[in-house]
Amino acid sequence: MGAGTGPARHRAVGEYGERVAARHLEAAGLRIIDRNWRCRHGEIDLVAVSADDPATVVVVEVKTRTTDAFGSPVEQITYRKAARLRRLAGLWLAEHPEVTSPLVRVDVVGVLVPRWGAPVVDHLEAVLS
């Protein structure tokens, strides 16, 4: 990640973190079926399904940070945020009737992007099922 500050830097870090998270999830056996889905109530970063459990839609919140000075990225997710993601999942399913999955799981992927070296990924499954 290059130098700089402000909204453009923040957006670039977030987009990089989402790409890292998607690769991590795919390596863990999930298939990404949607990215950055938005409605008037909010945004879902990633939506996935598992080859092992295709009956479960996995809604993923990605939190990316360049430092852990204020805690790890996953510590930024509150119960309220997880509950909002659950509601957004219902709206996503309503907009995608071709997906007939009866179960929804909310995962959080934290990506810590150090100044040097590889990003550190922390994947919490089923923070709210």
Rank of each mutant, 00 (worst) to 15 (best):
G2D: 04
A3T: 15
A3K: 12
A3C: 09
G4C: 10
T5P: 04
T5I: 12
G6H: 12
G6Q: 13
G6E: 13
G6R: 11
P7G: 13
A8N: 06
R9I: 06
H10F: 12
V13M: 12
G17F: 12
A21Y: 10
R23E: 01
A28N: 00
A28T: 00
I33H: 12
W37L: 13
W37E: 15
C39R: 00
G42E: 14
I44N: 03
I44Y: 03
D45S: 14
A48K: 13
V49K: 15
S50W: 05
S50H: 06
D53R: 15
P54G: 05
P54H: 08
V57Y: 06
V57W: 08
V58Q: 04
V60R: 05
V60D: 07
V62Y: 06
K63G: 02
K63E: 01
T64K: 00
T64I: 03
T66K: 05
T67S: 15
T67F: 06
A69Q: 04
A69G: 05
F70T: 06
S72N: 09
E75K: 07
Q76S: 15
I77G: 05
I77A: 09
T78P: 07
Y79L: 11
K81A: 12
A82H: 08
A83C: 06
R86Y: 07
R87E: 12
R87S: 08
L88M: 03
G90T: 00
G90E: 09
W92N: 03
L93Q: 13
A94F: 01
E95P: 02
P97N: 11
E98Y: 05
V99S: 04
T100R: 14
S101P: 01
R105T: 03
V108G: 03
V109A: 02
G110R: 02
G110S: 02
V111R: 00
L112K: 04
R115L: 08
W116K: 09
P119Y: 01
V120Y: 04
V120F: 04
H123L: 09
E125I: 06
